[in-house]
Each structure stands twice: as C-alpha cells, then as structure tokens.
Design a protein around this nucleic acid. Structure first.
Lengths: 158, 158
DNA sequence: CCCCTCTGTTTGACACGTCAATCATATCGA
DNA sequence: TCGATATGATTGACGTGTCAAACAGAGGGG
C-alpha cells in the first residue's frame, strides 16, 4: 500500500523541523557526554540502572525490563552483556520459567547509579528545565504528547 | 572546576523531560526507518547527499562538508567510506591542497537523492508539521532556539 | 634549506542499535 | 502423550558514532 502525499512542507516549516531535530540531537549528545565523564555511564546504562533500582528486590525479568524502558529485546540483551562484563549487573536464571533470565543490580551497579543521579539531574535542569520559560516547558510537554499520539497511531494499529 | 547544583527538577519537570526526550527519539527513529525502507538511505546518507547536491559542481572538500552538516571529521570519513563502497559518492584528491580530499556526488548518488526527497519530506510533514498546531509548531521553533543558545554557551566559550 | 608545528584526513578500537536467525523451553490441541 | 507453535532470550552480521592515535602534506622561522 503506497502512501498519499499532500503538499510538501514550506521553507519555514522545514527550517523549524531541521532546527528542532538537530537541536534535540545536540542536547541528547551533550547530556550523554556529561553523564559519561561524570559517571562513566551511557544513557542506556543509566536507564537500565534506574529501572532495576526501582524494581522489587533490585531485579527484573529481561522482558519486563525491556518493556519498562521501551527497548527491543535484542538491544537489551546486547546491552546487558556489556553491563555484566563491567560488573554493573548480573544475570540469574528465573526460578519459575526456565527460559527466562533475570537481571539483578550488583552493589557496584547500585553505587554507580547513586553517584550518577545527582549530577545527571542537575544537567537536565541546567540544559533543559532552566533553559526554557515555564510556558515553553509546558509547550514542550504538549508537543511531545501530540507527537507521541501520532507515533502510536503510525505503529500501533497493526 | 566542579559544577554547582541548584534544586533538582520536580517530578512534573522530570516527567516532561522524559516524555520530550523519548518522543523526539522515537520520532527520529521512525523517520529513519521510513527513509530506509522507502529509499535504502540512512539519515546520514541523506544529509551528505543533500549537502553535495546543493554544492557547486556536486562536490565539496571533506572539511567543508563536515562543517555544512555539523559532523566531526572522523565521523564523516567513516561515513564517506561506506557511501563510496555503495557507489553513492566518490573521493578525488584536491588539486590545490595535496592533503585535501573532495567528495563528489555520483550519478547513482544524485538519483538516490532525488528518489528519496519527496517521500522523506512527505514523512516529515505527516509526522511533524501536520501533527502540531501552528502555535505548537512555532513553539517548537522557539524551544529549539532557546536550547540551541544554551548549548552554544556550554560548548562555545572555549 | 631544514625542522617544527599546524592542519586535513584517515585509521583502529570499541560502544551502541537493528535486523534476521537461532535455540531452548512452554504450552496448547488432537 | 506427542507434535506444532508460541514465547523468552541470545547471537551474528553489519551500519553507525566517538575517541585517540596515526599520517601526510603545508607553512613559517631560523
């Protein structure tokens, strides 16, 4: 099934698009590099550690963890492999389902997460929250909401 | 020189932050995958082809190309290597500076770019421009502007 | 003219993401 | 119970991004 195309974006719309997408990318990469130099963690590491930290017993089934952070399974599997090598988590077999694996936060992982949190949230505040006016911050929330609905509509109705 | 930290973001601010950053990431990846299936090009390919297409004689020095699309040199070098293997561009020595390299658009590359443009701009319109109200679109532009200024301030004053 | 230093570019190593394929176990229906 | 199929997770291949190191040629001062 082909896609119908209406009129293309105007020059001004395209300018906003490029500005928006390039700037959000710069923001992501800036925060990633600060997280890396402050805490030796990648954003992926942080997401995983955060989810495990909040989980019952500091442990989660692989698939629940994937769902919690919105990742594909194979991405998570690769990432957990790298994190396990560094001693941030370990994997244990699941008692109730022999197929399953659980990821468990290690002490090192918990400590790394605690050390990372404050500087990271500070950077988010500095580069995002405090950079925008309250109106802009609210608008950013509404924009994200609108885009999310559109993305859900594009992928969801299988 | 350590960083001073003010109060951390509130729960609501953090919710907006996460929503914003995750949604822009989903948007990026959605458009990347559509570009890939429509045109067998990555967003990086498209950026390079666009810059070369607009350049005098469909060719640019590596460093000018890098500046035009805002990439680090080594990233561009790797990417040009991959594009050259696929026949989208070729590299020629620079006549006026024996260190220099020029990237030149091939006929295949130009054709790939032309075929990609319409569906890609259509997708941008569909997923971004038409998804937002005119007010939200304008707000997105202002938000990007504010964030960009902040990012420039953080990296620029060397 | 030669050396030192800058500049333009490439390279290698490694982390990250996606896709398709694989593997083992669960589970359901005949 | 047996066999087909579904599910949980891992793997391999490959494109992509970053960092630091390597290299080659340009340019300037002695």
């Amino acid at each position: 099934m082909g896609r119908r195309h209406g009129p293309l974006p105007t020059t001004e719309e395209l300018r906003i698009w490029r500005d928006f997408i390039e700037t959000t990318e710069r923001l992501r990469s800036h925060l990633a590099s600060r997280l890396q130099s402050d805490s030796a963690l990648s954003p992926g590491d942080y997401a995983v550690l955060l989810a495990l930290h909040e989980a019952e017993g500091h442990r989660l089934r692989s698939s629940e963890l994937a769902a919690a952070i919105g990742w594909e399974r194979s991405r998570l599997s690769h990432h957990l492999g790298r994190m396990e090598r560094r001693g941030l988590i370990r994997r244990v077999e699941c008692a109730t389902d022999n197929r399953g694996a659980e990821a468990v936060l290690t002490d090192d992982g918990a400590q790394a997460f605690r050390r990372a949190t404050l500087p990271h949230l500070g950077a988010v505040r500095e580069m995002f929250v405090d950079t925008l006016t309250p109106e802009q911050l609210a608008a950013a929330g509404e924009i994200a909401q609108a885009l999310r609905v559109r993305l859900d509509a594009a992928s969801g109705p299988s």
